[in-house]
Design a protein around this nucleic acid. Structure first.
Lengths: 196, 196
DNA sequence: TGTGTTTTTGACCATTTGGTCATAAAGTAT
DNA sequence: ATACTTTATGACCAAATGGTCAAAAACACA
């Protein structure tokens, strides 16, 4: 048909995302994105669109690679206690591994772009809804009724997001474990009927 | 001695703060600040310093006018349950009154500037510490031991910050009340000994 | 009234910003 | 080969950015 792309789209988006992740939308310049991606400005615009589109694509990429893995875990096997534990521990582990100071791009986007960019807000709401549904379902499996599950899931997400904010504000790593343990306290205890 | 200031410093800072509050640091231009304050660029620089200094001053003003009132309330009379209830309800009420979409400047600063600006990070940490100490003290009054109180206070702040993020991401107003109620579940029940 | 000091003013600046576009290059299909 | 279509390239742009500065203005004090 015509001249083919010389770059891998996913790979480029991953590199763009890292910039937005660590610097935020406004503090990121097209120069930063050009340098990080290895492409030239014209190619970036041609392939993805303007800066807002690049950000939206980056956020979607973040959600589908970083958040969706958590959703899959929540939808997988295991009891709720184990799942919520892993929800936090996955972040704790990642924090210990990297020195990366970007925090959670989903939270960052919520505070920096949700109000000013409708498409971003929509992507955020959809992703949070997915997270919530996964937690609700995991709770219902253990016999928690619909309303309690919905209420509890929203609360856990609040606590989860809050820790990501506090962590970026310089809170010690132990704080995240502390928050995790308090969330566990609110969950139904292991089903003793089933283990007997 | 010399020519006196023609403006009220607190009043100007209040107007600057509102801009940073609603737009964030990077998205705010000196033009925005000039328009909002009524001063000219030269006066702003002469009186406060550069943009970073304006932001830091705005954040400190936010903390001393918006957060410190919460700290005072926590340090005042009443049992913990009532205090934590009011901690959330004050925000819920303010949200219902204003259509203002700035969220919490302390949270915004945590995600946008804590990593890149040491002075901002310090101000944030100091303010959060004050919040935490106030909650810890309120808990200790009710007989909660030091360690439990510290752990619980940190958790409540996580939940509190998390709701502010979710709210800005478009969560319904009821979510904040839901988070409040779950926090209350973790608190010691009203001291029945004392009421008998 | 005159002197000294600080503020106010707005013109000015280099640099950077996000974004465009004509051209060249690189493929594919005939 | 040739024509056609898409991509890559980098020069280019108007506008906006944060920040400066010399001059004028406004006060306090002697």
């Amino acid at each position: 048909m015509a001249r083919p792309r010389e770059f891998d789209e996913q790979q480029v988006i991953e590199s763009l995302m890292k910039v937005f992740w660590s610097k935020g939308y406004e503090a990121t310049t097209m120069q930063d994105l050009v340098k990080a991606s290895g492409l030239l400005k014209g190619s970036l615009y041609g392939a993805f669109g303007d800066k807002q589109a690049l950000y939206l694509a980056s956020l979607k990429h973040y959600n589908s690679t970083r958040i969706h893995s958590q959703v899959d875990m929540l939808n997988g096997d295991g009891n709720v206690r184990r799942k919520i534990t892993r929800l936090f521990d996955n972040v704790i582990d990642a924090t210990k591994r990297d020195i990366f100071a970007g925090g959670c791009l989903l939270c960052n986007a919520s505070l920096e772009k949700a109000v000013s960019d409708k498409l971003v807000k929509n992507e955020i709401k959809t992703t949070i809804r997915r997270l919530k549904v996964a937690i609700v379902d995991a709770l219902k499996v253990e016999g928690v009724n619909e309303d309690s599950a919905a209420s509890l899931a929203a609360f856990i997400i609040s606590a989860y997001f809050g820790t990501r904010v506090l962590a970026k504000a310089g809170a010690p790593a132990a704080m995240m474990g502390n928050t995790r343990d308090h969330c566990l306290q609110l969950l139904p205890k292991a089903d003793l009927n089933r283990s007997s």
